[in-house]
Design a binder for these strands. Structure first.
Lengths: 337, 337
DNA sequence: GTTAGCACTCAGTTAAAGGGAGTGCTAATA
DNA sequence: TATTAGCACTCCCTTTAACTGAGTGCTAAC
């Protein structure tokens, strides 16, 4: 267990390093107004904190830097969520002033504002459309042999896929097919679309229309629509001194382009605010980064927010901001619709 | 006018610098098999070429480097389009093997492949949907006061916008509205949608439905749908030695995130292959870059391809690749649909 | 017209030297 | 016993100087 003095010193070191990005020395600490001990005492305490694995040195005679474990301790025990400034709140709320805005617009803007306010990179996961329920299905013929199928969900999401029309598939087949689909698939969650289509509905379709199998194959043979990602401040990382190394930078950027790896950042996708610091992340590209995630609700479906910054991140501020945006998004998406 | 020898020397310098990224010296040139003159002669010629503004030195006693003007000369007079390797062609054509693929998929894949083959960054402009013609309009009610309008074009593009339903707008109004819209706007280019809606069609709607004005406003008050951009190899630039400077890098990345500036890259959007070298670009962020653009056709609408690389770009190869992709895209989009 | 020869320039590397910020340890102090 | 002053030491970083190597421009000879 840490003494009060150790807590105090750790706090100063983390706070200092977060703003300066420079290792913190004992003299520097002792100069702080509220610190009453001498540099020598502080050095002793720092040696202890280092033994516990909370601090590190960059070389034998350098000042101290928080370790990942040190940040973890800081996040768990030391930081106190700050109230946001009026300006920050106003900025965030400006996203919601346009009543006509669509879900996608709002999320896009949120991502941008979050990255501006934090000066880190934000990634937002759009509401998970797979849990939307099917409201209406229609088919529009384009040419003799192609048509586009459109699915509208109860939350206003629209999905469409162009498909090849089987040869013996007449206009009346189209009509019948649309009727059957709408009757049988109404209110079915999007995630069960393909499944339903290939089981119950298949039989029905085969009875009433030509080339049913081919038709179904056309509709289901399609990559599942992926949850959309929205980025803000992609280049903010270039401003961070820890990323003046082009190699680290490339690893990080490559990771952010890779859908699968980005999805992993959001795991576990549970309510509440989650923080993963440096090596707590699975990805090597993230070993110098921390990520703060949270979820928001839009009706029955869930979306998520992530902020990626250096481990030397202003946790207090970012947590407050993310939480505020989370609440506002959830509120906006549940009153309007 | 340049002598043959000068042409030869310029060619060697450009070719050499493109592969090595190092200033080229006279000795190095004289060692080439097909070069018969001594270093001293070459130095004289280089001095002349420098006077003409085709070459530059990085410092007083360094080898020579092509200037933007030098590259321009090279591109206009010296390079000879190479036939692509079989492998390259096969790779590109693999994009088109999936018959079920949608336009967007194909373009996305093309962008990726192009960036891989060139090791530069590719940006592709999707077909300009504004010239598509309206095929079908439908409206699906979501809640009491919101609905989503869907427009399908003749090329299979689907556009949708959620809107607020006016208070005295009944279900029968919806039906009537949809009928009128389909009747009047069929085959109208998307770019005239708002305009048509606000002139001729407006009168008709006012006669037959309630709250017509509000309804029209909801539909037209909407940012015009922007042509989609697809990126490939965004991080390839980080591999280029000229971008080990984080500042240049940031400028470039920021530019690539800014829609408006990216659109400018594609100007003038005319048929043929266009090359802009270094300072020929308007943007400062592009002063160390060249961009090669070309257009492809998809029915009546036009899309475009751009490759962004350092001015020290392998022009011969990139031009061949871009041209090949251009043709293939045009072919693919005009037989299938 | 071409080339060999030579003096010169400049970036980049290496080595040495000194300063600065920091540490750990020990002994004196409160 | 806990704290602190003092001191030797460590290591990074910057500066300086010397040296090397790749290149140039110019001149005189071929």
């Amino acid at each position: 267990m840490l003494t009060n003095r150790q807590l105090e010193i750790l706090q100063v070191i983390v706070d200092d390093f977060i703003t300066s990005a420079q290792p913190v020395g004992s003299r520097q600490i002792s100069k702080k107004k509220h610190i009453t001990y001498s540099p020598a005492t502080i050095r002793n305490e720092m040696a202890d904190l280092e033994e516990m694995g909370l601090l590190e040195k960059t070389h034998t005679s350098s000042g101290r830097v928080p370790s990942d474990k040190g940040y973890r301790f800081y996040v768990d025990h030391l930081l106190q969520p700050k109230r946001l400034l009026k300006e920050d709140m106003l900025q965030i709320q400006s996203v919601f002033t346009d009543q006509h805005a669509e879900v996608e617009q709002i999320i896009r803007k949120s991502a941008t504002i979050l990255s501006q306010l934090t000066s880190y990179t934000s990634i937002m996961l759009g509401p998970d459309v797979q849990s939307h329920r099917i409201k209406k299905i229609s088919i529009v013929s384009l040419t003799d042999d192609t048509a586009v199928a459109i699915i509208v969900t109860d939350q206003g999401h629209v999905e469409h896929r162009t498909f090849h029309v089987p040869e013996h598939f007449s206009a009346s087949d189209v009509e019948k097919a649309v009727n059957i689909l709408n009757e049988r698939l109404y209110n079915v969650p999007l995630e069960h679309f393909a499944q339903s289509l290939e089981t119950e509905v298949q039989r029905l379709l085969k009875q009433h229309i030509n080339a049913a199998e081919e038709f179904i194959a056309s509709l289901t043979h399609h990559e599942p629509s992926q949850t959309k990602l929205f980025y803000g401040g992609k280049t903010n990382m270039l401003r961070q001194p820890e990323f003046h190394d082009v190699n680290k930078l490339r690893m990080l950027m490559d990771m952010m382009e890779a859908r699968q790896q980005v999805y992993e950042l959001f795991q576990p996708n549970e309510a509440g605010i989650h923080i993963r610091i440096g090596s707590e992340n699975e990805q090597i590209a993230m070993e110098n980064c921390s990520v703060i995630t949270a979820t928001y609700q839009a009706g029955e479906s869930t979306g998520a927010i992530a902020i990626i910054g250096p481990t030397r991140m202003d946790y207090e501020r970012v947590i407050s901001l993310v939480d505020f945006v989370r609440r506002d998004l959830t509120r906006a998406f549940n009153k309007a619709k």
